[in-house]
Amino acid sequence: MYVSLDRDRCSGIGICESIAPGYFEIAEDGSLQLLRDDVEPEAITEVEEAVRSCPTLALTLQR
């Protein structure tokens, strides 16, 4: 499973980072960086929650 980010939608609000800091981080310029895009099995719940919580629906989980 991996996360993909639609940069055109993302507004850098950072909800994803607060939920799954190992996967998402807001950079100096305010844009979101994916720290890794392959989701480890033990982190799936956390990453799913981050994906769900994004206000702009910019994140998706893909198999």
């Binding site: 993909s4 980010l5 639609d6 940069r7 055109d8 939608r9 993302c10 507004s11 850098g12 981080e25 310029d29 305010g30 844009s31 960086q33 994916l34 720290l35 890794r36 895009d37």
Partner: peptide, 19 residues
């Protein structure tokens, strides 16, 4: 840090203003 996926060329239309 980490792996960064390449940014799509932003159209600027749907993105919020990036300060």
């Amino acid at each position: 840090r980490g792996r960064v996926t390449p940014a799509k060329q932003s159209t600027g239309s749907s993105a919020r203003p990036s300060p």
